[in-house]
Design a protein around this nucleic acid. Structure first.
Lengths: 343, 343
DNA sequence: TACAATAATACAAACGTTTGTATTTTGTAA
DNA sequence: TTACAAAATACAAACGTTTGTATTATTGTA
């Protein structure tokens, strides 16, 4: 079945004209006269011509592809970011090539090398939490490949744009909300410690407690170490079962932790929100349908993608060589109030 | 900053050898002697050489890219399928290029045309529910581009492999389960009628009812027409509120509908599973954490991706031209029992 | 009717590889 | 040494476009 593709040469031969004229005709260049253009279009259509993108790219040096590297597919946050990116770049005639680093540093490097082979015009990357050194990213940038980083950035990389949210501040405001409502025994459920975003959300908690002079009670703090949902479930469930004190509020660094917590708290005969209020982090659609629905810090994930894309397209357009040094964009979060805080 | 890439020619010149030798050396061809190979490798490394994938593709006629078209990003089913595809093809040195048709026929065509420009070696596609004619897909296949279709296939396309689940049977077995438990008033919550999978799930319901001689009660049937979560929520909620009869079981064609139903039923003072049992369809992780957790027909989404990928890679390897005509693979579903059916 | 000016088209190099064939170099045996 | 096979390397075409420059065809004007 392997049919040979129709190429410019085939059209040219049939019409007894040159390849260049065919190429220009299809491009609607004013250099070919209308009647030939017509002929060419008709013949191209009749023969089922489809331009060869690869040849075009080689010739033009542009692929119109943007490489996106996310730590994992199965986290809606990243999918939303990708949607945001896609939404923006498709308006500029770009497509995205999504790769997952499977939260592994090695795989992140591999993906980057793959992109470096000239397949993409630019790269948008969320560093995996394993990533501690950034020379692989710097190397890409030094080669002149436009790059934007988003989320979980432990270290600023010069030459790349950054898009983040202020996790610390977001977390602070959630805890502050509890405190202002008179809550004292505020549980903090954190995540693995080598993720920058989780560190920041933790420090936000600590700072809020400190500001209002509430002593930190280590018993009320749990850092989940699991990567797997089942394990998380168990870890949180065990924690609450063994907890001697009765908390009056729970702040968790993800929506999932929040829902897990509500689930186990309900089983332990807490009434939500009367006995204990819960705030999660993320807002990716699930917390909304949960019963009770989960109040949470809403991350502007789609917007994050859009903004990253915008910065990248900017770099792409801007042939004028590193005119812009590096931009760091911090997006605003907000709290979405639902039943778990009595709203 | 736009640095010129190092190319084979640069290495060749430095070492005073020919481009061909450099190329073969890097390929570890036995045609170059070890000592030159060494030199080339060292020089390539020193100069920071990265092969140009585009040039390679043009020369070899292979891009090692596989195009995937899904109706939407924000449905975990499709993301899981993509994960499955990625998992399989990455073992064969392929990467995937994911596009969303945004459930629009037109956009599906556009995406297909894009891939047709020679960027991908093969295509895996889930037709949008808007898609009624399949000539665009046939056209692709006629050009000799290996193609696999999965899910929501209204019409068999000759020359393409198909991967499906037996929605009818899956649905039948869920309803049968209710019937065997003595349920009589079984609500069916369906989806938009132009989606093949929803039609099949509906017919499965009808067939089960028929087989056990339970008369169909139109009042117990709702076909959701909404595309948007908020609207669905409203539609289902309104339906149950207005329902005069008290159902003893609810079967829904998606997990979301299942959870919506449980949510509103609980509000209407039904006890789940005592008064009414619920089974959803999908099993994509959310139903598990819901309270009560949702029993559902589990779709083997990851596996579906893997299988589709396997078939495609098969076609890709198989240069021997349409030896295999067309394969239709039907994957098994199973019911995962949880709290909403008292398990 | 011829000549310039301009319109239309053709030619050919370039993009960075791969790969078949030709050529040079090396090693070995007479 | 010389001759010859084998090993190593060089040459050049090909992949399908784009695009600057050269060439040819057409028009208008004197």
């Amino acid at each position: 079945m392997k049919k040979r593709r129709v190429k410019l040469e085939d059209i040219a031969r049939k019409l007894n004209i040159s390849i260049a004229t065919v190429s220009r005709a299809l491009d609607e260049s004013p250099r070919v006269k209308p009647s030939t253009r017509e002929k060419v279009f008709r013949m191209a259509k009749a023969m089922g011509y489809m331009p060869n993108q690869i040849a075009k790219s080689l010739s033009s040096g542009k692929t119109n592809l943007i490489g996106v590297i996310i730590p994992r597919y199965d986290e809606s946050f990243f999918i939303e970011v990708c949607r945001g990116i896609d939404h923006y770049v498709s308006k500029h005639n770009y497509k995205i090539l999504i790769s997952s680093s499977r939260t592994s540093f090695e795989s992140e490097q591999e993906n980057l090398s793959f992109f470096e082979k000239g397949l993409v015009d630019g790269i948008i990357l969320c560093p995996s939490h394993e990533t501690e050194t950034f020379s692989h990213i710097r190397s890409i940038i030094n080669k002149g490949i436009p790059t934007v980083l988003f989320d979980n950035i432990k270290e600023e990389v010069s030459g790349a744009d950054h898009v983040l949210i202020d996790d610390n501040k977001a977390s602070f405001s959630a805890v502050e909300y509890f405190i202002k409502k008179g809550k004292k025994k505020i549980v903090f459920i954190g995540g693995i410690k080598d993720k920058k975003v989780f560190q920041d959300r933790y420090s936000g908690y600590l700072e809020a407690m400190k500001k209002y002079n509430i002593p930190i009670d280590e018993d009320l703090i749990l850092h989940c170490n699991s990567l797997d949902r089942e394990e998380e479930d168990l870890e949180i469930s065990k924690y609450f079962k063994n907890l001697k004190k009765r908390p009056d509020a729970v702040f968790t660094v993800t929506d999932n932790y929040g829902m897990m917590s509500m689930k186990i708290l309900t089983k332990l005969n807490y009434n939500i929100p009367k006995d204990v209020e819960v705030i999660g982090f993320g807002d990716l659609g699930v917390g909304k349908v949960f019963v009770p629905s989960l109040t949470c810090v809403a991350q502007p994930s789609f917007e994050m993608g859009q903004k990253s894309a915008e910065l990248l397209i900017d770099q792409l357009k801007d042939e004028s060589d590193e005119k812009h040094k590096k931009r760091v964009i911090t997006l605003e979060t907000k709290i979405v109030f639902r039943e778990s805080t009595g709203d």
